[in-house]
Amino acid sequence: MPSQRVLGVAVIGAGKMGADHVRRIHDVISGARVTAVADIEAERAQLLADSIEGCTAYTEAAAAIAAEDVDAVLIASPGPAHEAALSEALGRDLPVLCEKPMTPDTASAQRILEAEQRLGRRRIQVGFMRRYDAEYVQLKRLLDSGELGAALMLHQRHRNLLMPPGFTDEMLISSSVAHEVDATRWLLDQEITAITVHKPTASSHAPAGMNDPQFVLLETSAGGLVDVEIFGHCGYGYQVQAEAVCERGTVRIGDERGPRISADGRWGARIPPDYVERFEGAYDREVQTWVDATRRGEITGPSAWDGYAAAAVCEAGLVSQREGGRVEVALIERPEFYE
């Protein structure tokens, strides 16, 4: 039911992303407050909870979600823990904003789809924040307008200064390229039908066991081709770019942010160091939109189906990464619930 009262939010995960969302809810957006923080590391959860008046720390997601002052849940824990937290929230009929991946594979994603459908109403929004980035929104509007004709190809680049410890070869696809997978489906309004992962010569800066960079080719249901360069250790900053090649022109985003400066014998613009800074505005709009919709009794934004579809593409991508060659994406029939 629509509510004008401030939402009590449980943030699950007190790492880099979870802490940033706690800051965002407390300092930036309106209509919500953090009432619970959960993390398996008790000290980290307590430290974050102590920074918010009236916030309680928990070491178990289920306990935080069950708290009486919790009206909604924001999941920012590692992907393998998402299914349990989502199931707990759905069991209590609570709205959820879940960072990607919704779940790490299609089997668990299907279980979440089925659980949400049994409720008879949407409760899950998946955190594909690029849909809330100003440049991506402009690109989407331009493509939808038809001004440049049909989109034929999409070039995407995703470069990180470096990846955190423990980041694996597989995570380049399941955690990083997952963003381009959703952006492709959203921008083109098409499903991805096949994926091929190519592994060029690895950078000398890549950790042992990681083939970095990688080049991914996506095929869409309308015959479009999309390429993605993922470079986890580019060494100079965090850079995300996209260029749509259309029948009557092209449009490109992500080239430069902030002022261009000429000084000390060189010119250029600053490149942000990570995704938290690059997509700060997108995260702010995403969470504010989720809170506003939740208070109206609605769920908007990327759905659990979008989370499932991304998992299916990445799952096929991991097969291609491991075995080589083109792999077709196996999607179940889209339930009418998500039309």
Rank of each mutant, 00 (worst) to 15 (best):
V96Q: 01
S175A: 13
S175R: 15
S176A: 15
R185C: 12
A32T: 13
A183G: 13
A282I: 03
S174E: 05
F167K: 04
D93A: 02
D105V: 07
P80M: 07
G54N: 02
A304F: 01
E333I: 07
H21P: 07
I173A: 00
E315H: 07
S320N: 09
V70E: 04
A316K: 05
Y308W: 11
Q288T: 12
G54Y: 02
R295F: 03
E286F: 10
H198T: 15
A84E: 01
H179Q: 13
E333L: 03
D274F: 03
A134C: 02
S176D: 15
R44I: 07
Q46I: 10
L188N: 10
A206S: 05
P272H: 12
R123P: 12
G237S: 06
H82F: 00
A263L: 10
D69G: 02
A38C: 07
W267P: 12
D274C: 04
A72Q: 08
D69K: 03
A309D: 07
A49P: 04
T184I: 00
L47P: 06
A178R: 14
T300A: 06
A19F: 05
V240M: 06
L94H: 03
L97W: 10
E116H: 02
G79N: 00
Y132Q: 08
V226A: 00
M102K: 09
V319Y: 03
S87P: 08
L154W: 03
F215A: 11
A14E: 02
Q138F: 01
Y275A: 12
D69P: 04
A183H: 14
E298M: 07
V329K: 11
Y136C: 06
W305C: 04
A330I: 12
G324W: 04
G232I: 02
A38G: 11
A282Q: 03
V329D: 06
A242G: 14
M1E: 01
S145W: 02
N160W: 14
H158M: 07
R326D: 12
R141E: 15
L187Y: 12
D50V: 07
T59D: 00
R130D: 08
R295G: 10
A84T: 11
G265S: 12
A183S: 15
Y58F: 11
R118F: 07
D264Q: 15
S320K: 03
E247D: 14
L139W: 06
P95E: 00
R185I: 15
V291I: 09
G254A: 09
M17V: 14
R111A: 07
G15C: 08
A67F: 02
V291S: 02
L113R: 06
G146A: 01
G13N: 05
